[in-house]
Design a protein around this nucleic acid. Structure first.
Lengths: 154, 154
DNA sequence: CCACGATACATAGGAATCCTATGCACCTCA
DNA sequence: TGAGGTGCATAGGATTCCTATGTATCGTGG
């Protein structure tokens, strides 16, 4: 039955993606908390951005993003400047040390996985194909019209 | 340069895996907290197990696993029984409602991703190949001898 | 020009998930 | 029988996340 198979594929995909991600986060030798790394990554991609923009892009609440940005600013990884278009808003940007911290965290995570990849003796084309699919899926989730979970309606 | 390419592959893989996993967790319509789901999944795989065994399998600390199991027990999703071999230990097992809660959470997550998969019109063989690689990687991480992060040495 | 509703961000209080340190009961071994 | 190790629980704390609410600012319509 085709539908059951698709459910199983989706479940297997999510389960293994979650496990791999968690494993790498817990074994990588870097000090950057993963939510902090995620925010730095977004700021790098989006360029100077408002807190509400970052919150939307990260699918997180505005107060949560406010606190994350405050921490990153305290650590010197981002700066905030007034948005000339709106006195209420500020624009978050990476500092050179923020860029360095993000790069270091990425290298550490990549280095954690590399021995596993080479240990599998995986065909690089095969890995590339898998990564391409994951990237397409992530892109597609950005535009997917997912109905709000029904159980959360007030 | 081959090494740079492998770093990039590993980085892309982990980044997209993390994003996909987070997206699904946040959009799936179920009430089971993701750490609870993870523990239920482990208990399902391992059969009756001790807290220290579950902690090791989940790469988490023993007190953290104690608290998680306490919560699951309070919700009626697991039971604990004395280990006849050791009065200090107890064995954690799934209850029927734990099994049902886990299955419901898995279905919800899979259903969240399914429209994205079908929207991509992805060749099921291509998805299957990607999942197979991820599963192999996860298996390989269990046996990988990863050096402890150097920065954490006391 | 002013008032009202909307918006951007901050604070408060709390939940979930994770940690280390430590304590107590039990186990193993010499 | 005692010392060292093990299994689990508790205490205190960090990180990440939430909703509710408050304040300052903006936009729009009358």
């Amino acid at each position: 039955m085709e539908r059951v198979s698709t459910d199983d594929l989706a479940d297997d995909l999510l389960r293994s993606a979650a496990r791999l991600s968690r494993w790498a986060s817990r074994h990588a030798a870097h000090d950057l908390p993963w939510a902090q790394a995620r925010v730095l990554s977004l700021v790098e991609e989006l360029g100077p951005a408002r807190i509400t923009t970052l919150a939307a892009a990260d699918d997180t609440s505005q107060p949560t993003m406010t606190t994350q940005v405050q921490r990153l600013e305290a650590e010197g990884f981002v700066t905030r400047s007034s948005d000339p278009a709106d006195a209420r808003a500020s624009l978050v940007e990476l500092t050179p040390s923020g860029t360095a911290a993000l790069a270091a965290a990425r290298r550490a995570r990549a280095r954690t996985l590399e021995p596993v990849l080479t240990g599998l003796d995986a065909d690089p084309a095969r890995v590339r194909a898998a990564v391409d699919l994951l990237v397409e899926l992530v892109e597609a989730t950005r535009t997917a019209a997912v109905p709000e979970p029904a159980g959360t309606a007030s």
